Computed example of a mutant assay.
Amino acid sequence: MLDLTRIKGISLDLDDTLWPVLPTIERAEKVLHGWLVERAPMSAALFSSPQALQEIRDHMKANRPELKHDLSAIRRESIRLALYRAGENPLLADEAFEVFFAERQRVTLFDDARPALEFLSARFPLACISNGNADVGRVGLGSFFRASISAREFGIGKPDPRIFHAAAGALDLNVEQVLHVGDDATLDALGALNAGMQAAWVNRSEQLWPHQAEPHVTLASLDELCALFR
């Protein structure tokens, strides 16, 4: 059971907790493809081939393991590799990635996200913890968070306990004083439990809990989270 008296700060996941990520990525990929069609059509054709795209992903995984926590670098270098293989200018990769990245930050929040952040940030210091490459400042939510911890910058991703410990430290709190809120049963909820935090699992789609250890609370929405503190 959730112990509200212990909670002095809250950490939150971003993708699929505050906004649905798949539509965002799909739209960003379409914008990138349109840009490539105009400036690097052979590379655009290469990215249109599922087999070629999978081969590029496999190549990156095998040959650039140091980038595994940096989705931005993986995306940028995948574009660079496609440009090279297509016989086009690899130097276009940085500009192409920025086209993708700018669109990736144009998220559509869940209806409960901004009201929840307004409510929670008025009561607790907030941190975000993400394995993805969303930038809360560019998304427009930076003012709600005291700290932003990303796997890309930290070098370690969820569910490793160390990234949760880093978030607690950024809030000047002990891990047992922090409630972590996220949608992923393994990366967020179980990761937080193993790190010594209380865990709130945001289960918007009525999924089954897959682990033996259970979260302290399961929520269908962020509205339900806020209701706990009213």
Results as ranks from 00 to 15, higher is better:
Q207L: 14
G157K: 00
Y84P: 00
V181Q: 10
E55V: 04
P159V: 00
F154W: 03
D223G: 10
S49F: 00
G87C: 04
E77L: 02
G137A: 13
L219W: 12
A192M: 07
G157F: 03
F110C: 06
T24H: 08
A167E: 13
Q54Y: 05
D223A: 06
F97S: 06
P41H: 11
V37R: 13
E98P: 00
Q51D: 15
L4K: 15
A28P: 07
L4F: 11
S121P: 03
S121N: 10
M197T: 01
R138Y: 12
D16V: 09
A40R: 13
I79M: 13
K30T: 14
E103P: 01
C128T: 15
R146F: 05
K61N: 09
T17A: 08
P159G: 00
G196F: 06
A45L: 12
D183R: 09
L32E: 11
R152W: 00
L91G: 14
S48D: 15
L117H: 02
L173N: 12
S130Q: 10
N203H: 10
A134W: 15
D223S: 11
V99R: 03
E26V: 04
A44R: 04
L92D: 02
T17H: 13
E95Y: 08
Q51W: 08
L117R: 06
I56A: 12
T218N: 03
A167D: 11
A195L: 12
A199I: 07
D3T: 06
A192L: 04
T108F: 03
P50L: 03
F97R: 08
P215L: 00
L228S: 06
S205L: 11
R123E: 01
N203Q: 07
Q207G: 09
D70L: 03
F124A: 03
P90L: 11
V31L: 13
V202L: 15
R85Q: 13
L120I: 01
L117V: 02
A220F: 01
S221E: 08
L71I: 07
R146V: 01
A96N: 09
F47Q: 06
A192V: 02
G196P: 03
A40E: 14
D16N: 15
P50Y: 10
E214V: 09
V181A: 08
S48L: 12
G132E: 13
D58Y: 01
H180A: 07
F97L: 09
I56K: 08
L92S: 04
L71Y: 10
H180C: 02
E55N: 14
S205F: 12
V217S: 06
M1C: 04
G87P: 02
E26G: 00
A73K: 04
Q198R: 11
V136W: 10
L22T: 13
R27H: 12
D188Y: 05
A93V: 06
D94L: 01
R27G: 01
S143P: 02
V181Y: 11
E98Q: 11
R114V: 09
V175T: 13
